[in-house]
Design a protein around this nucleic acid. Structure first.
Length: 800
RNA sequence: GGGUGCUUAGCUCAGCGGUAGAGCGUCGCCCUUACAAGGCGGUGGUCGUAGGUUCGAUCCCUACAGCACCCA
């Protein structure tokens, strides 16, 4: 173990001990009889198991009466010290204060009254075994009944029990006890019962509550007997306040409740473990059992109030692993040394004097499953020992589950190795790998079956960037992520798309650097894509601030694919190949500039592919950083918006989509060049058609568009409507007249539905009176637009 | 028992008071000179159930159901 961190652990233990905040006590703890160690409450899982509820009769010593207790653990009766009933239970009021024969033991125990007892559960009588049940322990304390431990540390019956049961395992003892009760006629009833069984997280062994000597951190007392502050005041409350006051913020916010609720109900922290690895507890005992705590034996002696009796012996136990983890925020910065900390090669690895400025750090990223284990305890120790909070924000990420929503775990064989997702793996090796460590044949068969069903072709190679992008895209505020490989495959396609877009841009550039054009970019398409880039970057920045990586990934995905690739790259083709040299030069530069900004924005999410592409892109812009990671973050503010251009391009997209839709629905081959006519429309439509004629022809594969003058005959055509403009494709030889009529009819009825919805709203006096003016205005605008479209569609239908 | 979430298209998930969205799947046409890991165009949802608040509810409130997790 690293000496610097060991020093931190020792100092914390010793300081807390000398402040009266760590104590050694004989307490009931969660004992793992397989590992032979105490474990903390947090390391115990309660699982539902099928068991039994046994009813046992205890006879009163006066011979007149008896009562029946119900229990799920009959063997613990060997350690019973009383039977409790509810003080207001009329059935048993007459027995309170009497004594009972405890069967099989020859002991006598009292009947006591305690309102912990639930009158309606079982028989209303509860056997009290303080040494092996937490609730019973509390009752025992209240009634000053000394506990009787009946198990050894490996859960076998000990010498406090009658001889016949000694040495039996707790479950063998159960059988023996039941058999003897049965024989004595005292077993009244046996019935099936579902019960909560405490199970050790690490060993899966059933926990046995056991009275042992352990070390505890006081987190619950307000004030010590000598007047010094107790653990609640000194440790727990400052940690609560740090979050309650907003000094530390959880993202998503609702985890604040989880944190505060736990701290509000916290118990003292059992920090000793009977394991052979870990930080050894810096405590020594003399032959009289006195405790000496210190850096080492000499220090411990020096700080002792009394002289030790005989030789000192160090505690064999080690500290809970979370004890040292709790110190991470400051132990890693060199604390408790007050200067440079060197490693074994003499290199300075930390220096508290300098490094403490990194406290608090900005953010801790972690899973909600260790909010108690780790987050809360870091806050406690950091506040106590440095007076500062450890971090300002705690981002709680979701936990990844398999496609069926099951928590991934090695014992279930449903884990996915990230490397297998990145590189791909064939079915057989995947099956072998997933079942290799499974020892139970039934589980093995089940896992194999599931894998063959879920991944019949193995796992395709997703790639590092695509996997990273996938997790970003899945990182919403929800608490679980059901991992679906299909989603990752989609994002793999995105990486491919980006790669190909870059190839297109680069292959269209001449040798050498690409200079920026004088003044504004020459074309509206450029000014539009720059405006959209500006908006996207602004959005991305917001999503970083709010930790919405899913929205961030989505925004960049949409910009790259749906706008840059689908529209700008396509629009650049006529510009690059057209006659306007200035437009071509300007477009080349804009293609490059937007790509370079996108690479920067995507770099945190897809670091490798962006870096690789940038190696070619950066130099073309004369950038000197040499590596994408050295480039500054792209700022929305650095880009000039042009909203007029946006309007122009939106119009263009509508016209083009209209033509494409007709082509597709009328089954006109994409390769075929078709005639194109425009009719009606306003002055701006005329100007736009003139401006975009070449691009429309190029991208829609049409002949040069022609206008139909008002009043002249027009050929039967299929038409799309954009505002008041009719975009028409003559039918002759291309289109089925009936099919077009049907298509128009569908379109008309769809719009009529929309109009009726609008009319319904606007016809409602309450809506007009109560809704905000802008909502009403928006509704009026919509109905106007729909009516314009409808009129154009009807005119077109009439012409057929 | 206490608590916290979730329930939206076939699947995985966004949206959370004012025209229901994405990816994958699916259907049709296309190997069009960056990309078939692609292009273009479709299909698909009374937003768990029942009440309530509101001019208006997938969104807010209440109850219920189902699922998940946390703490006893």
């Amino acid at each position: 173990m690293d000496e610097g961190l060991s020093a931190a652990v020792r100092k914390v233990f010793i300081d807390w001990y000398r402040a009266g905040l760590i104590y050694r006590g004989n307490r009931l703890v969660n004992w793992d009889p397989v590992l032979g160690t105490a474990v903390s409450d947090l390391e115990v899982n309660n699982v539902e198991r099928d068991g039994h509820m046994w009813s046992i009769r205890y006879m009163a010593t006066d011979g007149a009466a008896s009562l029946v207790v119900a229990t799920t653990r009959p063997e613990t009766m060997l350690g019973d010290v009383a039977v409790a009933v509810h003080p207001e239970d009329p059935r048993y009021a007459h027995l309170i204060g009497h004594t009972l024969h405890l069967p099989l033991t020859g002991r006598q125990i009292p009947v006591i009254a305690d309102d912990y007892v639930d009158k309606d559960f079982g028989t209303g009588c509860v056997k009290i075994t303080p040494a092996h049940d937490f609730n019973d322990y509390a009752i025992g304390q209240r009634h000053k009944l000394p506990p009787i431990t009946i198990f050894t540390l490996d859960a076998k019956v000990n010498d406090n029990a009658p001889e016949k049961y000694r040495g039996l395992d707790r479950y063998e003892a159960r059988k023996a006890v039941l058999a003897d009760l049965e024989a004595a006629g005292l077993l009244v009833e046996t019935k099936a019962h579902k019960l909560q069984v405490p199970v050790s997280q690490r060993s899966d062994a059933v926990i046995e509550p056991m009275l042992t000597d352990q070390w505890f951190v006081d987190l619950t007392s307000d004030v010590q007997t000598d007047g010094r502050p107790g653990g609640r005041k000194a440790i727990t409350e400052p940690a609560l306040d740090a979050v309650r006051s907003g000094e530390i913020r959880f993202v998503p916010e609702n985890w604040t409740n989880t944190y505060t609720q736990w701290l509000d109900n916290i118990q003292d922290w059992c920090v000793s473990r009977q394991l052979w690895w870990g930080h050894r507890i810096p405590a020594w005992y003399d032959e009289a059992g006195n405790i000496f705590v210190g850096e080492d034996e000499a220090d411990a002696r020096a700080h002792a109030a009394t002289a030790p009796v005989g030789a000192l012996r160090q505690d064999e136990d080690v500290l809970d692993t979370w004890f040292s983890s709790a110190l991470w925020p400051f132990s890693t910065l060199g604390w408790p040394a007050d200067g440079p900390v060197k490693n074994e090669r003499g290199e300075v690895v930390a220096n508290w004097q300098q490094d403490k400025i990194f406290l608090p750090s900005a953010v801790l990223v972690t899973g909600f499953d260790i909010i108690f284990f780790w987050v809360a305890r870091m806050v406690m120790t950091t506040k106590y020992f440095t007076g500062k909070i450890p971090f300002r924000e705690v981002y709680i990420n979701a936990i990844v589950r398999d496609a069926e929503g099951q928590k991934m775990s090695k014992s279930k064989g449903n884990t996915l190795d990230p490397l297998d997702l990145i590189d791909g793996i064939a079915l057989e090796p995947l099956v072998e790998k997933s079942t290799r460590s499974l020892l139970i044949p039934q589980v093995r068969a089940k896992v194999e079956k599931r894998i063959r069903k879920d991944y019949p072709d193995g796992i395709p190679a997703i790639g590092t960037d695509a996997l990273r992008f996938t997790f970003a895209a899945l990182a919403s505020y929800s608490r679980t992520i059901n991992f679906d490989i299909k989603r990752a495959e989609g994002y793999k396609a995105f990486c491919n798309k980006l790669w190909n877009a870059a190839r297109f841009v680069l292959m269209n550039l001449p040798e050498g650097q690409i200079a920026a054009p004088q003044g504004l970019p020459a074309t509206e398409a450029e000014r539009w894509i720059l405006t959209r880039l500006k908006q996207t970057l602004a959005e991305v920045e917001q999503h970083f601030v709010s930790y919405r990586f899913d929205h961030l990934a989505q925004a960049l995905y949409e910009f790259v694919w749906n706008e840059y690739c689908d529209w700008f790259l396509e629009l650049s083709k006529p510009a690059l190949n057209g006659d306007d040299a200035a437009a071509a030069a300007s477009t080349r530069h804009t293609l490059l500039v937007v790509l370079e900004s996108v690479l920067r924005a995507l770099h945190p999410v897809t670091p490798f592919i962006t870096e690789e592409i940038w190696k070619d892109v950066g130099p073309k812009l004369g950038l000197t950083e040499g590596s994408l990671i050295h480039r500054p973050w792209p700022k929305a503010d650095d880009i000039v918006a042009d909203h007029a251009a946006t309007g122009e391009i939106e119009w263009f997209k509508n016209v083009l989509s209209g033509i494409r839709k007709i082509r597709s629905e009328m089954n006109i081959s994409p390769a075929r060049t078709i005639p194109l006519l425009f009719a009606d429309g306003d002055a701006s439509d005329h100007a736009r058609v003139t401006k975009f004629a070449a691009q429309i022809s190029f991208l829609a594969r049409t002949e040069t568009p022609q206008w139909i003058e008002v009043g002249t005959d027009e050929p039967a055509s299929a038409a799309a409507v954009v505002g008041a403009l009719r975009v028409m494709i003559p039918l002759a030889g291309l289109i089925d007249l009936e099919a077009e009529k049907a298509r128009l009819a569908r379109e008309i009825s769809r719009i009529e539905v929309e109009i009726r919805k609008c009319e319904g709203k606007l016809g409602n006096a309450n809506f007009v009176a109560n809704a905000p003016a802008e909502v009403v205005a928006q509704e009026r605008q919509r109905i106007t637009d729909w009516n314009t479209t409808l009129a154009a569609l009807r005119e077109q239908a009439g012409k057929l």
